[in-house]
Design a protein around this nucleic acid. Structure first.
Length: 777
DNA sequence: CAGTGAGCGAGCTTCCGCTTGACTT
């Protein structure tokens, strides 16, 4: 039996540390928090100084049992993370394992290296009760806000399972307000003029581009300019050459990894975290939930020697990055490869790609600046006072660019990579080949992507590395925010060209305003945001988290009692909740669209029991009002009277096929076509208002083949079917589904085997089914 | 499975931050 029990949070960490410490130490993991407020009840005694009721989390019972047993016979070292949550985890461990708080050794290290760990063992400290209290205040405040606000929403929007919280509600607010900025944006245009010139260099013709020093607002102005250029000659009037340098981005944190993996690999934040977890568990990278850009000395040294060996001394530049984010707690290192010399790993395609990204980013962060030379040449026009400006950039020394360049969120269509210019000199007269004036529209602010929303939340100090991905999932699961599906719309633009002495005008089309993969608010998301910002503006304030973080810090410093801080917050907050819940106002977002041209009845859009809808007429009229559901992509806030009235064309007769009518409609599960008694869902790109007969028949036939492929085998006498599903083959009996055990071939199952699967696996499947279905209604 | 369009009723939702698997139709 070992004399010492050392407890850390993560099992992968435990393994590594056990190797370092040897046989005197048993190193175990507690898998994060072991105790928390109860899941189903508020668990805070408000009348009694907000005393929390903690329970061992159901999935941690076994862990706690094991740790208790080990703790009885060994000296316990609490080695959880060095931050507020880590301190609290240690305190809960001390409580549950009945350790003497004054005697228990608490140690911390923020890198897993032999020196760091042995040094930590040399200097244990006591539990920091003030820091624990700061965590309790954070926990209790979040619980009070979440569990008091959510019921207000259930009532005001008449919808169960809505939720509100310090983090998620602000995340939704960001998306809602961005959408409104975009809706309010008035796109303006101007004409951007680009000339293509050529010049002789060493007997060869070389061409280069230059942009005019001004843009034109009107087409006529642009046209006049081109005409003026017909007889013109051109002269290089000035050349400036300036050295420039670029430095690498710091190593990855959780947030920057999510952003880069989204931009460069197209990963969702959830996927990034799942793949990173795999890399971490197999020992290939350091911990992936971190807000620190710090690299351990050991890592820096091994990266340095690797760079020198592989690229040469001149490529090495040791940099120690400092975390700028004020809310960072820096309990871990930056995300980096465990062994810098491994420039690739074996794993799934996704693991290999993410590792490659992490490796390059980390190594590049320790490489020299890139040295550039920027050339700006000015070209005069004999017939006009404007000038053409040619810009060129030449890399003199690539430095870190040899490996890696960080991407940006902006679309890169306009970024003409300014390459090398031919050698120009003042006084030269380049010849013009073409000049084009292109109509360019100003762009509204971009919608958030999952990753750019994480970036924004981090800037505001809202949320933590471990919660970014779950928060993004929550706001989508609750139906507040969706990933956009709509393709862009076509827009005309003009291009004027001067070539061979004549000016031509062409109208072209571009696609703009695609929302694919970007976050758009739903009607419910917008209504919840408006309601909460109106009635609970303090909690919805973008600075709320930053403000209370300061108060948590005061608690951690021992200057403020946590009960007092929570009391000061709760008293006005709760009064607000009470008055809001008692008011008879319901949130429907009702909006008048106008009157029906035929009947003169009012047309309104609002949130109904089953979602956003249009109503024609009022419920007080003698004849009942008529209703129509909004289509996906439409919203109460933006739908027009014309669009609303068009919805009443449903159900719509599309035509007939195989002697049966085909109708298009918008139902409970979205738009569909009905063919006799068969129903087929429309695809995202289809619109029930316009879908034609050919397409409808195509979809019907598609569905028939899909249904045929779905079927593998059946035993009708027992109502058993073996089918192909989303997660592979499965067994179905009546309404229950069963997993087919590994190693069994689904098409060769016998009746006996099927019955066995049902009798053994039956219980589990039935209970899990209940769990998942209860969410839906 | 492809309706419906309120406000009583019965009983259910819900937070944020630490950690991993188990499991999905």
């Amino acid at each position: 039996m070992a004399k010492n029990l050392l407890i850390v949070e993560s099992p992968a960490k435990a393994k590594t540390i056990e190797k370092i410490l040897g046989s005197d130490y048993v190193v175990k993991s507690c898998f994060g928090h072991i105790r928390d407020l109860p899941q189903k009840a508020i668990g805070v005694d408000i009348k009694n100084q907000f005393q929390p009721e903690y329970v061992v989390s159901p999935d941690k019972k076994d862990i706690v049992k094991e740790l208790s047993k080990l703790a009885k016979e060994a000296e316990v070292w609490l080695a959880t993370d060095e931050d507020r949550e880590g301190e609290a985890i240690s305190w809960h461990l001390a409580e549950v394992l009945h350790l003497d708080i004054n005697k228990t050794k608490r140690i911390v290290f923020n890198e897993i290296t032999e020196t760091a760990i042995k040094k930590a063992i040399q200097s244990p400290r006591k539990l920091d009760v003030n820091l624990v209290n700061a965590q309790q205040a954070r926990r209790i405040l979040d619980r009070l806000v979440g569990f008091e606000l959510s019921p207000v929403l259930w009532r005001k929007l008449n919808r169960p399972s809505l939720s509100a919280g310090r983090v998620q509600s602000v995340a939704v607010r960001l998306v809602v307000e961005r959408e409104r900025e975009i809706n309010a944006f008035n796109s303006e245009y101007s004409y951007k003029v680009v000339g293509v010139f050529s010049i002789e260099e060493k007997g060869k013709e070389k061409s280069f581009k230059a942009e005019l020093s001004r843009k034109f607002e009107k087409k006529e102005e642009a046209e006049q300019f081109l005409k003026d250029c017909i007889p013109a000659s051109y002269k290089v009037s000035d050349i400036q050459v300036k050295p420039a340098s670029k430095s690498p981005a710091p190593p990855f944190t959780t947030s920057t990894l999510q952003q880069e993996a989204s931009r460069k690999l197209g990963f969702s934040v959830k996927k990034t975290m799942m793949v990173a977890q795999k890399l971490y568990e197999s020992g290939k990278i350091t911990y992936m939930r971190t807000d620190s850009v710090n690299l351990s000395d050991l890592a820096i040294n091994s990266i340095k020697s690797m760079i020198k060996e592989r690229f040469g001394d001149e490529y090495s530049h040791v940099r120690q990055y400092v975390t700028k984010n004020a809310s960072a707690q820096e309990a871990h290192e930056a995300i980096r490869p465990t062994y810098a010399q491994n420039d690739s790993i074996d794993g799934s395609k996704d693991e290999e790609r993410l590792y490659d990204l992490i490796w390059k980013r980390t190594v590049a962060s320790q490489m020299s600046n890139a040295k550039l030379e920027r050339t700006i040449a000015q070209i005069d026009i004999s017939t006009r006072k404007e000038q053409f400006i040619a810009e060129g950039e030449v890399i003199k020394f690539e430095g870190f660019l040899k490996l890696y360049l960080e991407s940006t969120d902006e679309e890169s269509e306009d970024e003409e990579q300014s390459g090398m210019l031919p050698a120009l000199s003042v006084g030269q007269s380049p010849t013009i080949q073409t000049i084009t004036a292109t109509q360019k529209f100003s762009k509204p602010p971009g919608r958030y992507t999952e990753a750019s929303l994480v970036k924004k939340l981090e800037e505001l100090g809202i949320g933590r590395p471990s919660t970014y991905a779950p928060t993004i999932s929550t706001i989508q699961d609750r139906g507040y925010v969706e990933k956009g599906q709509r393709e862009g719309q076509k827009r005309d633009y003009n291009v004027l060209t001067l070539k061979n002495g004549t000016v031509t005008v062409k109208a072209l089309q571009e696609v703009t305003g695609s929302v694919k993969g970007q976050l758009v608010p739903t009607d419910i998301g917008s209504l919840v945001t408006d309601f909460l910002t109106d009635q609970f503006n303090k909690v919805m304030d973008y600075k709320f988290t930053a403000n209370i973080e300061k108060e948590f810090d005061s608690i951690a410093d021992g200057k403020v009692e946590w009960e007092k801080m929570i009391g000061n917050f709760y008293q006005p907050f709760h009064e607000n909740v009470e008055s809001s819940i008692n008011s008879k106002v319901y949130v429907t977002g009702e909006r008048q669209l106008g009157v029906h041209p035929a009947s003169n009845k009012p047309v309104t859009a609002r949130l109904g029991k089953f979602g956003p809808m249009i109503q024609v007429g009022s419920s007080e009229d003698e004849t009942k009002p008529t209703y129509a559901k909004l289509l996906s992509g439409q919203s109460i806030e933006t739908i027009t009277l014309e669009e609303a009235l068009a919805l009443f064309n449903l159900p719509r007769l599309v035509g007939s096929f195989e002697d049966k009518e085909i109708k298009a409609n918008n139902g409970r599960f979205g738009p569909y076509i009905q063919h006799g008694t068969a129903f087929v869902s429309l695809k995202r790109e289809d619109d029930p208002l316009t879908v034609d007969l050919d397409r409808a028949i195509e979809l019907i036939l598609e569905k028939r083949t899909a249904d045929a492929n779905k079927f593998i085998a059946e035993f009708p006498e027992h109502a058993i079917q073996i089918l192909n599903g989303r997660f592979g083959p499965y067994l179905k009996q009546g309404k229950n589904n069963f997993k087919i055990p590994k190693g069994k071939q689904p098409d060769k199952l016998t009746l006996e085997e099927c019955l066995e699967i049902i009798s053994t696996g039956g219980k589990d499947s039935a209970t899990t089914k209940k769990k998942t279905t209860k969410f839906k209604k």
